[in-house]
Nucleic acid binder design. Structure first.
Lengths: 184, 184
DNA sequence: TTGCTTACTTACTGGTAAGTAAGTATTTTG
DNA sequence: CAAAATACTTACTTACCAGTAAGTAAGCAA
């Protein structure tokens, strides 16, 4: 990825999180980077191409983090994930999934597929962490690890949404409770 | 509210839940109702006016439901709320808050205020139900009722979002777990 | 040095968005 | 029955959007 291409994807990521996919335009990207909208189209012919690149970058970041954390105890791994979301919260961002899911029906099938992949990857990882953590007695919960993982992800996601409306402390109140539930 | 006005609000509600606020247009409303876009502007001069009316109608519906349920035991009251969301889920809708929160920064201040009011009303009601339910031994949970209410709402909200991406059974898996956690 | 590629710009298109001004038919009211 | 309000339509504006065609400057490659 060239420098410009990377700048475009980063800015698009930010715009999706702040305004939503359908609410930002190529101009919103071109102007701050001091290029013309055609330059953005040169790198990403359609808006869907750009959207897919943003999701791909997010997945790469996630995979990279997961790898860095893999030697840690499961509760710390999960805490790191919470921290990623926490930082987004205090930066005024919502998570990619939280922003793209409401617009899901307006997106092209390739982009929908990419979002599915991302959801699957996160669910898979959280499920494994919870499962292993329960085996190691670091987590305690009823039901299947998969169901519990959905609950955790669901909370991370929408606590960012609620935080936007009700203030960032909302995120802390929800996530504190969620982690405590898993400990006892 | 006249018949046409009501039809417009209902359709706008549906469009917000399916496509998002920034992705639907006055044409999307005018065409199915067989009127011109100017007719929609006659009833709701700006899109923000329409958005506010949609939120207001949702709040009225909520207040009406709450009143109908008020004599029921707290666990049944909560179950009814879950059922409202469940029906939305299987209709392919996300909840209003879940759809509007990602777009929050692009909305006019009066609309943001209205969304705040809605969030507050729901949190207040769920908090009271959980608090009373715990006193009546119908619910068992640690921490404050307010924090637990945020957790419940957060889950209802984003399980609808996740369900859109991962299928409607996702909603059932999350909500079943959430209700079981409150019972024991 | 000629030719090809990269990374753009310039200038435009067709389409759609929200919103408005002026007119009209129908109903309501004094 | 006349005036006024209601509920629109017609016809339009301004603005912006995603996307494209054609051109260009700079670098590298044979």
């Amino acid at each position: 990825m060239t420098v410009m291409k990377d700048k475009i994807v980063s800015l698009a990521d930010k715009l999706i999180r702040i305004k939503g996919f359908n609410a930002f335009s190529y101009k919103d990207i071109a102007d701050p980077l001091a290029v013309k909208n055609a330059a953005v189209h040169y790198h990403f012919p359609s808006k869907a191409d750009l959207g897919i690149a943003v999701v791909k970058e997010e997945m790469d970041r996630f995979q990279h983090n997961v790898q860095r954390w893999q030697e840690l105890p499961e509760d710390e791994q999960l805490a790191h994930l919470f921290d990623v979301f926490r930082r987004h919260c205090y930066a005024g961002n919502v998570c990619l999934m939280g922003s793209l899911a409401p617009d899901y029906e307006t997106l092209t099938p390739p982009m929908q597929d990419k979002i599915n992949d991302m959801a699957e990857a996160i669910v898979e990882w959280v499920t494994a962490v919870l499962e292993n953590g329960r085996n190691n007695k670091r987590f305690h919960f009823k039901g299947s690890a998969g169901d519990r993982a959905l609950l955790v992800i669901s909370n991370l996601q929408s606590s960012l949404l609620l935080a936007r409306v009700m203030g960032p402390e909302t995120f802390d109140r929800i996530s504190r409770q969620l982690l405590e539930d898993l400990r006892s």
